[in-house]
Amino acid sequence: MLNVFDIVKLTKIDHKEVDNNQMVITDGNGKPNAILTELLNDVISNLRIFVDMASVYSVDDLLRELAEHTPLPEDVLEEYEKVLREPIYDLNFVPKRGQVEVVVGEG
């Protein structure tokens, strides 16, 4: 099963890596999860600044890169890991908003 990291790694919009505001985490009913979305947006912001995603192939690789190249404390990295390992059940592309809804809970 794919997880949130896989979607961040693989998804492109107009052939560009997604920005932090282009991914929204929802439950199976389409209700946005503000806490997980905010956490994922923070992860994406930091990785776009500090990490070359072409050389990262797993959550462990990404966390190691962030630990080496950012001043993020261990507890923040642990929270990042939780959201990145979250299994996904579905994807919904919203072209009008240029967003990808990542569904992490079953409906």
Rank of each mutant, 00 (worst) to 15 (best):
L2T: 05
N3L: 02
I7K: 08
K9E: 10
K9T: 07
T11C: 13
T11P: 06
T11A: 15
K12E: 11
K12S: 01
I13S: 01
I13H: 08
D14R: 15
E17T: 03
D19K: 15
Q22K: 13
M23H: 03
D27P: 05
G30F: 10
K31Q: 14
N33Q: 13
A34T: 12
I35R: 13
I35W: 11
I35M: 13
T37L: 09
E38W: 00
L39E: 10
L39P: 03
L40D: 03
L40E: 05
L40W: 10
N41I: 00
I44D: 03
S45A: 14
N46M: 06
L47R: 08
I49W: 07
I49S: 11
I49M: 12
M53V: 10
A54M: 01
A54S: 13
S55H: 14
V56P: 02
V59I: 09
D60G: 01
D61Y: 06
E65T: 05
L66I: 06
A67K: 11
P71E: 05
P71Y: 03
L77Q: 01
L77S: 03
Y80M: 02
E81N: 11
K82P: 01
P87Y: 07
D90P: 03
P95F: 09
R97W: 10
R97L: 15
G98C: 06
G98R: 13
V102S: 04
V103N: 02
V103C: 06
V104R: 04
V104F: 02
G105W: 11
G105S: 14
E106M: 12
